[in-house]
Amino acid sequence: MNDRGAAAEQRAADFIATQGLKLVARNWRCRFGEIDLIAKEGKTLIFIEVRARRHAQFGGAASSIQRSKQEKLIRTAQLYLQSISPVPPCRFDAICIDGDDLVWLKDCIQAD
């Protein structure tokens, strides 16, 4: 990960802490991929994708989360969930940073 990516993830981690979420894991990796942040909000486990772009041109950070990336996140989360019991309610969020603007997209990726 480059310095800019690490800085974006740190900014996202700091942000979710101010929103009352408890960070569970950072950069959780398995054979399917990586989940940037895993947090808890009450009893809900949240898998968070962090995306950063210098500016919002060409759709910005949110549009960079293509369907293939979403599927990879879902498979990775499913493997993570196999390691815990009982499985809590879950959701997928994204924190998108375009320049200085940070947007938290809650429940933006749906596992079918």
Rank of each mutant, 00 (worst) to 15 (best):
C90K: 01
R29M: 08
R26E: 13
Y80T: 01
S63P: 01
L105R: 10
L102Q: 07
A13I: 05
R91L: 05
D107F: 01
F15N: 01
T44F: 06
K106D: 05
A52E: 12
R4P: 04
Q70H: 04
D93H: 09
I35L: 11
F92H: 10
C30F: 07
F32C: 12
A111K: 06
P86K: 09
I48H: 09
R75F: 15
S63H: 08
L73I: 12
I48D: 03
V50F: 09
I35W: 10
A7V: 04
D112R: 02
E41N: 01
A6P: 03
F92Y: 15
R26M: 14
S63W: 06
L21V: 02
A6M: 09
I65Q: 03
A7E: 11
D112K: 05
V50Q: 05
D101H: 06
W28S: 05
L81R: 07
G20T: 00
K72V: 14
I97H: 05
R29T: 08
S68R: 10
V103H: 12
I48K: 06
R4N: 14
T18K: 10
F58M: 12
K106T: 03
C108P: 06
I38P: 04
G33Y: 14
K69Q: 14
L81F: 09
C30D: 15
R26I: 06
A25V: 00
D100M: 11
C108S: 07
D36P: 03
Y80H: 13
R91H: 03
A56D: 12
L105D: 02
S68Q: 13
G20H: 01
A7P: 01
F47N: 05
L23F: 04
R11I: 10
G20M: 01
E34W: 11
P86W: 08
S64C: 11
G20F: 00
D112C: 04
C90N: 02
I46Y: 06
R26V: 06
I95H: 09
K40V: 01
K72D: 02
N27F: 05
L102K: 04
N27A: 13
G99A: 11
T18N: 08
Q110R: 00
G60Q: 06
E49R: 10
R31D: 15
G59E: 06
T76P: 10
A25Y: 13
I48V: 13
R54M: 14
D112I: 02
M1D: 09
